[in-house]
Amino acid sequence: MDLSLSTRTVGDRTIVEVGGEIDVYTAPKLREQLVELVNDGSYHLVVDMEGVDFLDSTGLGVLVGGLKRVRAHEGSLRLVCNQERILKIFRITGLTKVFPIHTSVDEAVAATD
């Protein structure tokens, strides 16, 4: 399965809905999307990963890169994920301390800290 990406805005947040597999082949597409959003002035991103079937370290690297970019503009990057197999990758790499991870898009949009 390839990667699917769609974006929408809710208030000052931009929701990036990701579906499919994020790996060494597809991660560059996600990177391009995040770079484009930041270049267009979207600095508060919510990456909805509920439709993601597979995530590897290349994908983690892209998310960290995205976080670095939005932070340069005092922005934020929040994740939405409830899938244990995806959450596990964030845990073993210690990235649960780096990314705010929410259980729903609504919760991520409402978060302000």
Binding site: V24, D56, S57, T58, G61, G65, I92, T93
Partner: peptide, 16 residues
């Protein structure tokens, strides 16, 4: 050094 994806990959493998 998260930009070094190969090493990040090894970190994931050793964690798994």
């Amino acid at each position: 050094e998260l930009s070094d994806e190969g090493e990040m990959g090894l970190a994931v493998i050793s964690g798994l």
